[in-house]
Design a protein around this nucleic acid. Structure first.
Length: 480
RNA sequence: GGCCCGGUGGUCAAACGGUUAAGACACCGCCCUUUCACGGCGGUAAUACGAGUUCGAUUCUCGUCCGGGUCACCA
């Protein structure tokens, strides 16, 4: 039988990395077995509708490469794929259950429900309407009393199911509430719509976060009530965030950027995000870590999904990002970097190729570029001590000599290119009988006014251009 | 609090009864080098605890502890 999974997000306007990870694993479970991945929008909560949120979902899925085979935008044999457009579909199923005595009308007001809560806020519904006499139900209905439809959960016994990653799980039925199937507004609840839609859409594998683990019996009781086949459950370990006090909890806003959009804004590439997130809760069969979506798909196996929660580590994500940047070809790198170059060098200035050579191996996020290049725009005010460097054997005494010599040599240089400057400087060092560092350290300091720079003295001189470079060297000479 | 799940270095993780308990990130050191970075080499660091089962437990069972999740007319 063909494997079919579904990603069923609510249109909230952004994609939390937890949701992204779920979507990714849904995709992987399906695609690793040659199955279909479907997208279904769950918008039954009409009070929380967000404008344009659906588009965000399409855009994000496309950006990360999780293309769906069926969905609101691409169609499919089991549409519509938006729950609000399926509204009329659910009530008859609930009514069928009522007729069969597996569900019932409940007329309790929210106020009454509220009054049922114990001090600790944990007590649930008391099944007040479960056994209302048929005549009373009818007259209340006829009177137009607002109602919800609740599922009758067995009062005794237990429900057991097998999860593909967590194994066998048993829950006592008395722990389960008579859950609401249809809300007072006529819309189905998430749980109910989920079951109906998953069945109607022939979903074979339900992949979701393990916060649903304990509510799974409710789902199964529904499948059983309808006599439908229960799908394979694949519950995923949670993604956690580290709190300031060292504890961890479910990843949320207070842990930093936790939406795909937020991470992208922070300068993370979608390939890096996908790669990293895939490894949160799953590991490949070998030691590889930098993997494309295709490679992950090929190696993916439900059996290798982990049970324990994983802490989201921005450092490791950053490392992945750096790996992807280093692997870029010149053209792609330039396309990403250009906007940041312009921030420093002004609009439309054509970035010199040297820039790539000094930046690509050095940055892990493109947004770091302006910070690294800041000294090009304006020479910082730096202390004379910068000229002193033990390893390069530079002092306040020899630095002026080196600068003087460099200025002299550079003034007579016609070919102001990296190779030209390189030849000039290396020749000069040899001529002076000093190690390269002794000559180049003061030059780099004077040219940049910065202790740590991307690229060496010669790259910086090249980028600065003859006039500005010489101006800075002379200024440096006066400093020491 | 009830119920459910989990527990290998700081983090992600491999090892699914027998290994000197991998690897990666982070951190530290060395090398390379005109600084930093990249790259190369090396290092610090882990099976929560206690019982069992077994010739042998990271691995199986139980208890304790710790962590997390869940208990909505939200999804």
């Amino acid at each position: 039988m063909e494997v079919r999974t579904r990603y069923a997000p609510s249109p909230t306007g952004f994609m939390h990395v937890g949701n992204l990870r779920t979507a990714l694993y849904e995709y992987l479970v399906a695609k690793s077995q040659g199955g279909k991945f479907v997208l279904r929008i769950e918008d039954t909560d009409r009070e929380r509708l967000v404008e344009g949120a659906e588009e965000v979902i399409y855009k994000t899925l496309e950006q990360v490469g999780l293309s769906h085979d069926e969905g609101p935008d691409v169609g499919g044999a089991y549409g519509p794929y938006v729950q609000s457009q399926r509204k009329g579909l659910y009530l008859p199923y609930a009514e069928q259950l009522v007729r069969e005595g597996k569900a019932y009308y409940c007329f309790c007001t929210k106020e009454r429900l509220e009054s049922l809560k114990s001090e600790d806020g944990f007590a649930g519904y008391d099944r007040h309407c479960r056994d209302l006499p048929a005549e009373e139900v009818r007259s209340l209905l006829d009177a137009g009393t607002p109602y919800v439809i609740r599922q009758k959960i067995p009062l005794t016994g237990s429900t057991t199911f097998t999860d593909a990653v967590f194994g066998e799980i048993t829950i006592e039925n008395k722990e389960i509430e008579d859950q609401i199937l249809i809300k007072a507004d006529g819309f189905p609840t998430y749980n109910f719509a989920n079951v109906i839609d998953d069945h109607l859409m022939h979903i074979t594998h339900v992949v979701r976060g393990c916060e649903y683990l304990t509510s799974t019996p409710k789902y199964n009781l529904l499948y059983e009530a309808f006599g439908w086949e229960i799908p394979t459950y694949v519950h995923l370990p949670l993604i956690m965030g580290k709190n300031d006090d060292g504890t961890v909890s479910k990843l949320s806003k207070r842990h930093g950027s936790v939406s795909f959009e937020g991470l992208a804004e922070e300068g993370y590439l979608s390939e890096a995000i996908v790669n990293y997130v895939a490894l949160l809760g799953w590991s490949p069969s070998d030691n590889r870590e930098v993997l494309s979506l295709e490679e992950i798909t090929e190696d993916f196996d439900i059996a290798r999904i982990s049970k324990s929660p994983a802490v989201f580590d921005y450092d490791k994500l950053t490392w992945f990002n750096g790996e992807y940047i280093k692997a870029m070809d010149a053209e792609t790198f330039l396309a990403h970097a250009a906007p940041y170059y312009w921030e420093v060098f002004g609009e439309q200035e054509k970035p010199a190729p040297v820039l790539q050579s000094i930046l690509q191996a050095r940055i892990s996020r493109f947004k770091d570029i302006p910070g690294l290049l800041g000294f090009f725009k304006e020479l910082p005010d730096y202390p004379a001590e910068y000229f002193v460097n033990k390893k390069s054997k530079t002092t306040l005494e020899n630095s002026p000599q080196m600068l003087q010599a460099a200025i002299g040599a550079l003034e007579g240089l016609d070919d102001w290119t990296l190779t030209g400057i390189h030849q000039c400087m290396m020749g000069l060092a040899e001529q002076l009988g000093v190690k390269n560092g002794t000559l180049l350290w003061p030059v780099r300091i004077a040219a940049s006014g910065t202790l740590v720079t991307p690229g060496g003295a010669m790259e910086i001189l090249t980028l600065l251009g003859r006039e500005e470079a010489l101006r800075r060297l002379r200024a440096g000479l006066e400093k020491c």
